[in-house]
Simulated scan of single mutants.
Amino acid sequence: MVQFISAKVVENYRWSESVFSLRVIAEPFDFKAGQFVRIGLPGADLKSLRAYSLASAPGATVTDFVIAHVDGGMVSPQLNALKPGDSINITQPASGFFTLDEVPDGDDLWLLSTGTGIGPFLSMLHTEKPWQRFKQINLVHGVRVAEDLVYQDQIQQWQRQYPEQLRYQPVVTRETIPGALTERIPQLLESGALEAALATQLSINSQVMLCGNPDMISECRQVLADKGLQKNTRRKPGNVTSENYW
C-alpha cells in the first residue's frame, strides 16, 4: 500500500534553466540505489505525483533528486519554484528494479545516461557495490548544452578516489567543449568512438546500464545487440539493463 512521508526542502540548486536538484530532509526510509519514488506538493493526489529517481546514497541525511523543468508540466514547475523550508510529499515504499542487484557480474560496467537519467547512476556510485564488483566503470552523460553536465565536483572526487577504476565521458550535442564528444550516444557506440574515447572495448563480459531518453535507449539496445550484447532479464540474464525516463 502506498504511504506518504513529508520532507522539507533544504536546497533547490539550479544547474541551468532546465535542470535543478531538489534536496530535502525526510524521516529515514529504505531504498536501493537506482530506485524511484513519487513526489508532489502536500495535498496532491496520486494522479498529481511524478516519479523521480533518487540521486543520493541510501541512508544519506539529505535526499537528492535531479529534475528536469518541463514547461507546462503538472509537477516539475511547482517543484522548481520551491524554496528552503517548503514541504513535499514522498511516496513509500521506493519502487523499481533498475538496481545493481539485477545486473549480472562482469568485467566492466557501462553507465550510459542522458539528461537527468544520470541520477540513479550517481546513487549507485555513492555505494560500495559497483566499486567492489567491477574492475572498470565507464560513466557517460549525454546532454544538449554543457551547463547541464551536473555534479561535476562529485564526479571529479570519484575520479580522484578511484583513478584506475572510473572513466567519465561527457557528451554535449549542441556545443563544442574540450573533452566532450558531440555525436549522440547511439552513434558513438555504433562507430566505436565511445570505446575509443574511454580506451575500453565492449565485450560479452561487459554489463551496460541505460537510463534517460527512450529513443536513446532503444537505439543503443539495437546497436549493442548487433555487437552481441543482449537484453538482461531475470528469466534470461544478459548484458543490457535499461530504464526509460519518461
Score class of each variant (00 low, 15 high):
51 A>I: 01
186 P>M: 14
212 G>F: 07
82 L>A: 07
41 L>T: 12
102 E>L: 10
67 I>Q: 05
229 L>K: 10
236 K>V: 15
214 P>S: 06
165 Q>L: 02
8 K>D: 13
107 D>Y: 12
59 G>N: 04
179 G>D: 03
43 G>I: 15
65 F>E: 07
9 V>E: 12
208 V>I: 10
148 D>Q: 15
231 K>E: 14
1 M>E: 06
109 L>C: 05
205 N>Y: 10
103 V>F: 04
135 K>Y: 12
38 R>V: 01
142 G>A: 15
106 G>H: 03
34 G>D: 14
67 I>N: 06
229 L>N: 09
113 S>P: 08
70 V>R: 14
192 G>C: 05
191 S>I: 04
115 G>A: 05
155 I>E: 00
3 Q>R: 14
92 Q>F: 00
48 S>A: 11
29 F>G: 04
191 S>Y: 01
36 F>N: 11
13 Y>W: 12
8 K>M: 15
234 R>L: 14
126 H>K: 13
52 Y>P: 03
149 L>K: 04
102 E>G: 07
40 G>R: 09
68 A>E: 13
43 G>V: 15
173 T>D: 07
246 W>Y: 14
146 A>M: 01
96 G>M: 05
68 A>Q: 13
235 R>Y: 12
150 V>A: 07
131 W>K: 07
202 L>M: 10
90 I>T: 05
34 G>K: 14
125 L>K: 03
222 Q>Y: 14
110 W>M: 02
160 R>M: 05
205 N>W: 06
156 Q>A: 09
199 A>W: 01
217 I>G: 00
183 E>R: 14
35 Q>W: 10
163 P>E: 08
203 S>H: 03
19 V>K: 08
172 V>F: 10
236 K>W: 15
229 L>P: 09
61 T>W: 00
218 S>H: 09
